Amino acid sequence: MKVIDMHCDTMKAILDERDKNKNVNLKNNNFTVDIEKMKQGDYMLQVFAAYTNIKEGDTLVNCLRTIDLFHNEIKANKEDIGIVLSYDDILKNIKQNKMSALLSIEEGACCKGDLGILRNFYRLGVRMMTLTWNYENELGFPNEIIGNKLVCDRGLKNKGFEFIEEMEKLGIIIDVSHLSDAGFYDILNNTKKPFVASHSNSRSICGHRRNMTDDMIKKLADRGGVMGLNFYSNFLNDNTTFNNMSKIDDMINHVKHIKKIGGIEVIGLGSDFDGIECKVEIEDASKMQILAEKMKKEGFTENEVEHIFYKNVLNLFREIL
C-alpha cells in the first residue's frame, strides 16, 4: 500500500541536531522518518515541513535555513527521492522507482507579510503553506485559549486575504491546520480551489482546538479538500495526558467518524512525525502498513484504504500542482 504523508517535521529535527554539531542526515537517523524507513513503509511521497517558531529568532532566516537543508538532503539522496514542483514530477519519480518529496512551510510569519517573499518561497520549491502556527501573525490567528475561554472567532487579517489569493494564483496549496475556525471559513469563502488540513483530526471525537468540527469537515469535503490524520495522542483522545501512547484504535475512530461526515475522499494521512512528543503505536515510517492492515480488519475495503493512504492526496495534487 503506497503512502503519501502530508506532514512531518523531520527537517527541523535534523537542523536542530546539526546546530548541536551532531552528524545527522535524512538517509538513516534515529528519528521517525528517514529514507530507509520510508522505503520499508512503501512511501510514494512525503511532505516535509519547513517549520519555524516565532519565539525562536528570525522566522525568515530559520525557514530559509530549513529549506536549504531540505534541498541538500534530497540532493544527497537523489537515487532514492526527488523533489516535487509539479504533478508531473510525481509521475516521473514513480517511473524512476523513486519516492517524492514536497516542500511545505509551517508558519506563514516567515513571509513577513510580504507577497514578494511568498513568491520567492515558491521559486525555492514551496508548494504548501499553513497561514499560522500557534501564534497570531501578520496573516491571521490560530484558535487560542485566552483565560479559560477558547477563542475561535478571529480569522484572517487583510494580509491573509492577499496571501490566499496569491497562493491560489501560484499553485501553493493552502493548509488550514493551526488556523482558527474563523480563518477556516475565511478561506472557504474567499477561494475557489481545494485546500487541505494537512495534520488535523475530528473535534467530535477529540475536543482539542486543533481538530476540525463536523461542519468544517463537511465543507472541506464539499470543496474537494483533504485532511491528514494526525498521530499525536492529544489530538486523538480526550483522555490522554501529555506523554500518553498514540493508539491505532483511536486513529480508526477518527477515520470512521470523518468518513461518516465527509466521505472517504476527504481523508488522508498527516502523521506529524518528528513533531509530536508522545510515543506512537506506529513507531515510525517503516510501520505504516500496520495501520493499513488494521483499517482492513475494521471493515474498510482495499479501495477505501488506498484512497486514505495516497489516492485522495494524489488527486488533489493533480488538480493544484
Rank of each mutant, 00 (worst) to 15 (best):
V84K: 13
S198I: 03
K157T: 03
E277W: 01
V226I: 12
Q40L: 12
F184L: 04
F195C: 02
V255I: 15
D284A: 06
A292I: 00
E107W: 11
A109L: 02
N303S: 13
Y135T: 14
N143D: 11
M128P: 06
G108K: 03
T10G: 11
L91T: 09
D215G: 03
Y87L: 06
Y87H: 14
F309V: 00
E293I: 07
K22I: 09
K219F: 06
G160C: 04
H178N: 01
E306T: 03
H257A: 12
F317S: 08
E138D: 15
N23L: 10
M216D: 03
A221M: 11
W133F: 11
L269K: 10
D80H: 15
N230D: 10
T52K: 02
I35F: 12
V266Q: 07
E106H: 09
N93S: 05
N30Q: 10
D88R: 09
K157W: 00
V176Y: 02
L26P: 14
M38K: 14
I217E: 09
V84P: 15
R210G: 11
I81D: 12
N134R: 08
R18S: 02
G160H: 06
L156M: 03
I258V: 15
E165G: 02
L45E: 08
K27Y: 15
N120C: 03
Y122I: 04
A50S: 15
K218V: 00
K78P: 12
L269D: 09
D274A: 08
M212P: 11
D19Y: 05
N93P: 04
R209E: 14
T301S: 15
G270K: 02
K12Y: 07
M129E: 04
K37R: 15
G41E: 07
M295I: 07
V305Y: 06
K37I: 09
I173G: 08
V305L: 02
N189R: 07
H178E: 06
K2G: 02
L60I: 03
D5T: 00
K112D: 14
D89K: 09
N29I: 01
K12M: 14
N189P: 12
G82C: 13
P142T: 00
F70H: 12
K287G: 09
F235N: 15
G108P: 08
M167T: 07
K112E: 15
M1K: 07
M216E: 15
D181I: 02
S180D: 06
E293Q: 00
A76V: 05
I94G: 00
K55Y: 14
D249P: 05
M216G: 09
